[in-house]
């Protein structure tokens, strides 16, 4: 495999993961699954926070970073410029990451004995 990071038109594959898990083709041990799910939940939480920041920023009448409290300015810059660099990706991620989480939960269930 070449290094990661190819520019993909749609980099998300939530539906594929759900299918793989539903068909029992994706099976994960509980430890790996829990670790990955925890990471995804943290990322999802950050994404939702950034989306909230962007919505508040968009409704701000002046939209001047230097008028924001210093501790807030960096969050606004992170969120707004990340969205400018990859427009729509945060919304897409907010819709797709829960599918990955659900798929990994299902994939983990297959690996547990007695089920």
């Amino acid at each position: 495999m070449p290094p990661d990071g190819d520019a993909l038109p749609n980099p998300f594959a939530g539906e594929l993961f759900l299918t793989l898990a539903a068909e029992g083709r994706l099976v994960l041990d509980p430890v790996s699954a829990d670790e990955t799910i925890a990471g995804l939940e943290r990322t999802l939480s950050l994404i939702r926070a950034r989306l909230r920041v962007i919505r508040i920023w968009e409704q701000s009448p002046t939209q001047r970073v230097d008028e924001l409290p210093e501790e807030l300015a960096q969050d606004v810059i992170d969120a707004v410029f990340a969205d400018q660099l990859a427009p729509g990706k945060l919304e897409q991620a907010a819709a797709e990451l829960p599918k990955y989480i659900e798929a990994l939960r299902r994939a983990c269930r297959y690996a547990q004995p007695g089920e």
Binding site: D4, P11, T43, A86, A93, L97, Y100
Partner: peptide, 15 residues
Amino acid sequence: LLKHIERLQRDVLAP
């Protein structure tokens, strides 16, 4: 596939 998930998160948070 897990690497794909890692990269995806990295790309979303730091485009």
